[in-house]
């Protein structure tokens, strides 16, 4: 159920003389309220959806929540015991290094956000070491969806599940096929959102 932050909520904050508004995770801010927020230079703090809206709480000890806690509640995956963003990074690095060692390879640089044209050697999917050239070849061979490219090239199948590379892949797809960006369907999201240990998963 979407929750909206309205002008009246912002006004309530202003009346209390605060410079910060707490917005539940996933809630939308009405355009008018957003204007007001920007006009008055109020800071928006996102937080867990279970917390009440600031304007609705008569007295708000909850408003004392620090930024770190806000981070923590907003970032966990679909299960409490799933690993955090940082841990995920660490696992990705560890596994990549491990695989490199086995293959006796050196470590290529991480992909740039905006790939230069005609750079077919550039690694697009870091987890699986897939280059732009390989992705272009799959497209030439008739794969026209992110899911199809993922299955053929493995780009997006790695540890991060495409969080790093899917945007780059869809950009290649758009430029190769001349599609309007809206026509590229996102690849199917797969649970778990964050890697989870077998031993932890097994306990339900």
């Amino acid at each position: 159920m979407p929750v909206f932050v309205f002008v009246k909520d912002v006004e309530a904050i202003l009346r209390e003389g605060k410079q910060e508004i707490l917005v539940p995770e996933g809630a939308k801010i009405s355009p008018a309220a957003l204007d007001l927020i920007q006009e008055r230079g109020i800071r928006v703090v996102r937080r867990g959806a279970s917390e009440p809206l600031p304007g609705q709480a008569a007295s708000e000890p909850a408003a004392e929540t620090s930024d770190e806690q806000t981070e923590a509640t907003g970032r966990t995956g679909d299960r409490d015991d799933a690993v955090s963003e940082d841990e995920l990074e660490a696992i990705v690095d560890r596994v990549i290094k491990r695989l490199r060692r086995i293959r006796g390879e050196t470590i290529p640089p991480a992909p740039e956000d905006r790939p230069p044209a005609d750079d077919d050697d550039m690694i697009i999917c870091r987890c699986e070491e897939i280059t732009k050239g390989e992705i272009k070849e799959a497209i030439r061979n008739g794969m026209t969806t992110l899911n199809g490219i993922k299955r053929v090239t493995r780009a997006g199948m790695g540890l991060c599940q495409g969080q790093t590379c899917q945007r780059l892949v869809s950009r290649i797809l758009i430029s190769e096929l001349g599609l309007p960006p809206a026509e590229v369907e996102p690849s199917t999201a797969r649970a778990p959102v964050r890697p989870v240990r077998l031993s932890v998963f097994a306990t339900g």
Partner: peptide, 8 residues
């Protein structure tokens, strides 16, 4: 048992 599940 210590491996991570990354996709289902």
């Amino acid at each position: 048992k210590e491996l991570h599940v990354i996709r289902m």
